[in-house]
Write a protein that binds this DNA or RNA. Structure first.
Lengths: 268, 268
DNA sequence: CGTGGCCTTGAATAACCTCAATTAAGGTGG
DNA sequence: CCACCTTAATTGAGGTTATTCAAGGCCACG
């Protein structure tokens, strides 16, 4: 495979073809085999674990993660109806979560990347209420929820962290409700692109360009619009010189214009 | 004030004028002054607290609730930006939670009634990210989050309960995303009415009739449609003999038809 | 080099929104 | 207790946005 290397404005080297395979810039990457399976020396710790642990507590914290699990592209980490046992921290890869209505309509409820936690939907009923599908080969840390709860009782900082993760998800969904309820197509796409690039940037990738891991249809499902409308909106932004789009490749040329569209379509 | 009394199909007596003032059928109601401010003998316990406590633990659980607070109609329990200190269990009354975009558009993120918990949005950032507005005079139990966390460490059953409440909110918002992203106006209104009547019924009210506590505009904001469309859809359902509507009063005549509309508009 | 999945684009249609006028209800003060 | 005023709800006509249906192009993969 030819690897497309590009430098972003921070001077970080990023692999556009496989940016999904590591949160790290290429030059710092190590092979998976050299990484011990433990939170205490995980690169992603700051993303999915609380800070402020001393070394001996950190070691106990490693007990949260029982095992690792690989999920191939297109496969499910869990499905609607599965018994709930664990939360999952994404190490590598990219997921979508989605629910289906009785008559078969699908709603994507989120896209998740490295360092993010999925499975929270299962707590309330002891069964998952959505499907988690890997949009590319993925690797997750399996955190049995019993372990999480037990250690939470012991470590208030972990307890608070778990609460914050759940609260963050509630707040995220609130803003999706705003998006779905109040925004027009262009605003939704602008919000979507800005959110995606911001999260990728926080993981060491370019602030301006990336590869979409989902189809137009999946984007549309998430944003409450049809795939044709997604495509048309991308094309319009491209015509306006705001972004460059070619299939899954996206480059943001005018982030400020995108932000303006997001904040208010009718802004004078 | 003339009180409109009606009997539902279960034979329970319900006051339509003030069904919002108590979850209980009228004949079982006691005056607020006779109720001790404690979870251990609260009528709503089964709605907002875990079950399976023995009496001595129950007494410790009472420590969760620090105080009670009255919120008059139209006033806010908390606002976007307020420091987060507590969760609130609604004893009586009816709330909406809403967020505003930068350009002033409002999105109602939920309607909450007796026994439900609000304030979870504030945990992640130590500040509330939405407004909680009383749609009628309300009375809430103030549960300082520090107390909740402390007792959660001591009582696994409470810990699990807190997690379930947060997970339930995540799942609820997932289904709202489905509603906003995939459903048409009639389906949204059907889902809204069915959800409302189901929750009211769980609190001892009629399965078929109730008084809306929110305006058409607030319903529209929640469901992602304009107030005129809400009104038109109500009128259409009324013309079709599915419901009876007169201003805030709603009676569901054909729940099965409503369920069919909700499940699939295009159902043959 | 052919095949299938994904993406793009066009034209016609449907759903919902906007603007506007009217009616109904609720609250206030004389 | 009633008249007035304000807010909320209904309804109609016309416009806009996004959807639907359809055709064709691009790309990866065998």
């Amino acid at each position: 495979m030819v690897q497309v290397i590009s430098s972003n404005e921070d001077g970080k080297t990023v692999c556009l073809e496989c940016n999904h395979n590591s949160w790290q810039p290429m030059d710092q990457r190590t092979t998976p085999e050299t990484i011990k399976v433990a939170c205490s020396n995980c690169n992603l710790r700051e993303l999915c674990m609380p800070i402020g642990f001393n070394p001996e507590d950190m070691q106990k914290l490693d007990e949260v993660v029982a095992t690792r699990r690989r999920v191939k592209q297109g496969e499910r980490l869990f499905s609607n109806g599965d018994p709930f046992t664990s939360l999952y921290a994404i190490r590598t890869g990219f997921f979508k979560t989605c629910i289906s209505s009785e008559d078969g309509r699908e709603q994507v409820t989120g896209f998740q990347m490295a360092g993010e936690i999925i499975g929270l939907d299962g707590i309330v009923s002891d069964h998952h209420s959505c499907n988690a599908v890997a949009l590319e080969d993925a690797d997750v840390c399996v955190m049995p929820f019993a372990n999480v709860e037990e250690l939470s009782r012991e470590f208030p900082v972990l307890q608070r962290h778990v609460h914050k993760i759940m609260s963050r998800e509630i707040v995220r969904e609130n803003s999706i409700m705003m998006l779905l309820g109040n925004m027009r197509a262009e605003e939704r796409i602008a919000a979507f692109l800005l959110n995606l690039v911001q999260r990728l940037h926080a993981r060491g990738f370019s602030q301006s360009e990336f590869i979409l891991r989902m189809t137009r249809e999946e984007i549309g499902s998430y944003l409450g619009m049809k795939l044709e409308t997604v495509s048309r909106t991308f094309s319009k932004f491209s015509d306006d010189g705001i972004i460059e789009v070619k299939q899954r490749y996206v480059r943001i040329i005018e982030p400020d214009v995108l932000k303006k569209i997001f904040n208010s379509q009718t802004c004078s």
